[in-house]
């Protein structure tokens, strides 16, 4: 008997309508088990943040067309009504963002903002909620938490704001934490502090986590499994060890080389030529074919199927299809 997945997304399509259409996500499927940390790795425009936002139903309804199934703990997220959605957000799944200055409300103190979440999801009175908020700040190890409780977001440093946002996200005891590049804007030393904190909090609470990043180094520090995204599709899934040590998809290989992984000083790098597709229409062939060194005629004709190589590794590339048929 297999475990029930915490998150199940199958064949998700997200289309933004406007003067020009953008097919941001094109047939994405993934599973996340409880307590697992999944990294979504990709460059800007690959659809990683859109996937996270779709999971919390944060995309503007009138301009977006979403197809496919999104389930969290067996409940269909797409069919939640307003009241259910309010308790779902923050109570079951919550999110931390890249820029805490934009995510936190500038006119309320840190304590007020956390207390609001606590009141809503745990039904506590304000005094108790404030005490709870203080505990949360202690948990994320903000220095002198009593003082920070009464501070406004602009009064504290970037690293501390990120800690405050984590406290805010975890205040409702969610089963799932979505992290959208939470360390990208931080200095290297503060980034490592936040990553270690997230790793520890995740282990302690056993929540599932989806961590979006463009930085393989960050993914290595925090993820169990990684899904590599390109042009709105997952091109390769595997444990972080598989991805770093034995990448299969040509895009993953190129991405690793571009990360100066084992590069020799001053020697030209092996790069992926060109730039990602514009995605004005949904891809009908392999999206990576125009940039790929191993392109064959068939790559431009039809989209490659996802091939399962072993228990954990799935690759969407014709080379693997041929090898395994």
């Amino acid at each position: 008997m297999t475990q029930q997945p915490l998150v199940k997304i199958s064949d998700l399509h997200v289309l933004f309508k406007g003067q020009k259409n953008v097919c941001a996500v094109n047939g994405l499927s993934l599973n996340l088990l409880p307590g697992q940390v999944l990294g979504i790795l990709g460059e800007s425009g690959s659809g990683k943040s859109v996937t996270l936002k779709a999971l919390l139903r944060l995309l503007p309804a009138h301009k977006t067309e979403i197809r496919g199934l999104i389930e969290v703990l067996g409940r269909n997220v797409m069919s939640l009504n307003a009241a259910d959605l309010a308790s779902f957000r923050g109570g079951i799944a919550s999110m931390i963002f890249q820029d805490p200055m934009l995510a936190l409300d500038p006119v309320y103190t840190i304590g007020d903002q956390i207390a609001e979440v606590v009141t809503r999801h745990h039904g506590l009175k304000r005094r108790d909620a404030m005490a709870y908020a203080l505990d949360m700040l202690k948990k994320v190890r903000i220095p002198s938490p009593e003082r920070r409780l009464k501070a406004y977001p602009h009064e504290i440093s970037g690293g501390m704001r990120q800690r405050a946002m984590i406290a805010l996200a975890l205040a409702g005891n969610p089963k799932l934490l979505l992290a959208d590049e939470p360390t990208t804007a931080l200095d290297a030393s503060v980034q490592m502090q936040i990553l270690l904190l997230l790793r520890e909090l995740q282990k302690e609470s056993g929540m599932g986590m989806i961590f979006v990043t463009h930085d393989i180094g960050v993914a290595v520090e925090i993820c169990d499994v990684v899904a590599v995204m390109y042009a709105g599709q997952i091109v390769e899934t595997g444990t972080i060890r598989d991805i770093v040590k034995d990448p299969k998809h040509p895009y993953t290989k190129g991405l690793l080389a571009a990360n100066l992984h084992g590069a020799e000083r001053g020697k030209r790098l092996e790069t992926i030529p060109g730039s990602p597709p514009l995605l004005e229409s949904a891809p009908t062939s392999c999206s990576f074919a125009p940039r790929c060194a191993y392109t064959q005629a068939v790559c431009r004709l039809k989209a490659p199927e996802a091939v399962t190589i072993s228990k954990n590794i799935t690759v969407r590339c014709i080379l693997e299809t041929n090898m395994n048929s």
Partner: peptide, 25 residues
């Protein structure tokens, strides 16, 4: 030294285990 130690390890078998540089600048 602590700045260099704050670089991600890039090795899934040897993740960074402790904070090399505490606090903010």
């Amino acid at each position: 030294r602590s700045l260099l130690a704050s670089m991600p390890s890039m090795d899934p078998d040897h993740r960074s285990e402790h904070v090399a540089l505490a606090g903010d600048p």
